[in-house]
Amino acid sequence: GIPATNLSRVAGLEKQLAIELKVKQGAENMIQTYSNGSTKDRKLLLTAQQMLQDSKTKIDIIRMQLRRALQ
């Protein structure tokens, strides 16, 4: 079985993952909103794209940590 310490770690990672998935969803929504907007929305679009990139990276890292914890 999986050690108890790993189980609480997994629960924490799953919570983090859920949050990051919401951030990713929000960033994707912002990108959709701003991509057909005016030029003043360009900065917001770039910010949203950066957020999305960061979020995807975090999600990958969390998933990797989850896999390790579940081994």
Rank of each mutant, 00 (worst) to 15 (best):
Q71L: 10
I62R: 00
T33P: 01
A27M: 06
I2L: 09
K22E: 07
D54P: 00
V23N: 14
K40V: 10
R42G: 09
L13T: 00
Y34I: 08
R9D: 09
D60T: 13
K58L: 04
A11K: 10
R67L: 08
K43A: 14
D54T: 09
K15C: 14
Q65K: 09
A69P: 02
Q32C: 13
Y34A: 06
L46F: 06
N6H: 13
K43L: 12
L45W: 05
A18F: 07
I31S: 01
R63M: 13
Q71E: 09
A69V: 08
K58R: 13
L66G: 00
I61Y: 11
G1L: 08
L70Q: 07
M51I: 11
A4S: 09
V23P: 00
E14S: 10
G1D: 10
R63A: 04
L44V: 03
A11V: 07
M51A: 07
L66R: 01
I2G: 09
Q53R: 13
V10T: 03
K56T: 11
T57D: 11
Q50R: 15
R9G: 06
L70T: 04
R67G: 04
Q53I: 09
I19C: 12
G1Q: 09
Q16K: 09
Y34S: 03
D60V: 12
L7K: 12
M30V: 05
Q32T: 07
Q32A: 13
Q71A: 11
A4G: 12
L13I: 02
K56I: 15
K58P: 00
N29L: 14
V23A: 08
A11F: 05
Q53F: 07
Q32H: 10
N36E: 14
R9Q: 10
R68S: 09
P3N: 12
A11G: 04
V10Y: 05
S55M: 02
I59A: 02
V23Y: 08
G37F: 02
R67W: 08
L70C: 10
S35F: 14
L13A: 00
A48N: 01
Q25R: 09
E20M: 14
S55G: 01
Q53N: 05
G37L: 04
A48K: 01
N6I: 11
S8H: 10
A11H: 06
L52Y: 06
I59K: 00
I31M: 04
I59N: 00
G12H: 15
T47V: 14
Q71T: 08
L7G: 10
P3S: 06
T5S: 09
Q16F: 03
A11N: 04
K15P: 00
A27S: 02
Q25P: 00
D41R: 03
Q49N: 05
L70I: 07
K24C: 13
N36T: 12
L44G: 05
T47H: 13
M64F: 07
T39P: 07
L66A: 00
E20L: 13
M64R: 12
M30G: 01
G26S: 14
T47M: 15
K24I: 07
Q65C: 12
D41F: 04
A27Y: 12
S8W: 04
L21N: 03
Y34D: 01
G37Q: 06
T33V: 12
L21F: 04
Q50G: 03
S38G: 11
A27E: 00
S38L: 11
N6M: 08
Q50P: 00
S35I: 13
Q49V: 13
I31A: 02
N6G: 10
T47C: 15
T57Q: 12
K24V: 05
Q53A: 12
M64G: 07
I59S: 01
S55F: 01
T33R: 14
M51Q: 05
A18D: 05
P3Y: 03
R42D: 14
Q50K: 12
Q25T: 07
Q50V: 06
K43P: 06
N29W: 13
A48S: 02
M64W: 10
K22C: 14
T47I: 14
I61M: 13
G26H: 15
I59P: 00
G37V: 05
A69D: 02
I31H: 01
G12A: 15
L70R: 08
Q32F: 09
D54L: 07
A48Q: 02
L17C: 07
K22R: 10
A18W: 07
R9C: 15
L7S: 08
E28K: 04
L21K: 03
K22P: 00
V23D: 01
L66V: 02
T5A: 11
M64L: 11
P3H: 11
I19L: 12
D54W: 05
Q53P: 00
Q71V: 08
A69M: 09
Q71F: 06
N6P: 06
G26K: 15
I61K: 09
D54R: 13
R63Y: 11
G26Q: 15
N6W: 03
R67V: 08
A69F: 06
Q71H: 10
D60I: 14
R68F: 11
S35Q: 11
A27F: 14
Y34L: 14
Q25K: 11
T57K: 10
Y34C: 06
V10Q: 03
I59C: 02
Q25V: 06
R67S: 07
E14Y: 15
M51Y: 03
S38Y: 09
T47Q: 15
Q32K: 15
A48M: 05
V23R: 15
L13M: 03
G12R: 15
A18E: 08
T57C: 14
K24Q: 06
M51N: 03
A69N: 03
Q49I: 15
M51L: 11
L66W: 01
L52R: 02
A27V: 13
S55D: 00
E28H: 04
I2Q: 11
V10K: 04
R67A: 10
K15R: 13
Q32R: 09
Q16S: 05
E28F: 04
L17M: 03
I62M: 02
Q50H: 05
R42L: 13
T33F: 13
R67M: 07
E14C: 15
L7Y: 03
I62Y: 02
V10A: 03
K40F: 13
Q49D: 01
L7I: 09
L17K: 00
G12T: 14
A11D: 08
I62Q: 00
I59G: 00
L66Q: 01
N6K: 07
R63P: 00
K24Y: 14
E20K: 02
T39C: 14
G26Y: 15
P3L: 08
R42P: 13
A4H: 08
I2F: 11
R68Q: 12
I2A: 12
I31T: 01
K24L: 14
L70D: 03
I62D: 00
E20R: 02
L17T: 00
E20Y: 14
R63G: 02
L44S: 04
K56E: 10
Q71S: 11
K43H: 12
Q25D: 05
A69G: 03
K24G: 01
R68K: 11
P3F: 05
A27C: 13
I62N: 00
E28I: 11
Q32L: 11
V10P: 01
G37W: 01
S35A: 09
T33Q: 15
M64I: 07
S38P: 08
T5E: 13
D54V: 13
T5I: 11
G37S: 09
S35K: 08
K58W: 03
L45M: 05
D54I: 08
L7R: 14
Q71D: 12
I31Y: 02
T33L: 15
Q50W: 05
I62S: 00
G12P: 03
M51C: 06
I59L: 04
S38R: 04
L44F: 06
I2Y: 09
N29C: 15
K43S: 10
M64H: 10
K56L: 15
M64S: 08
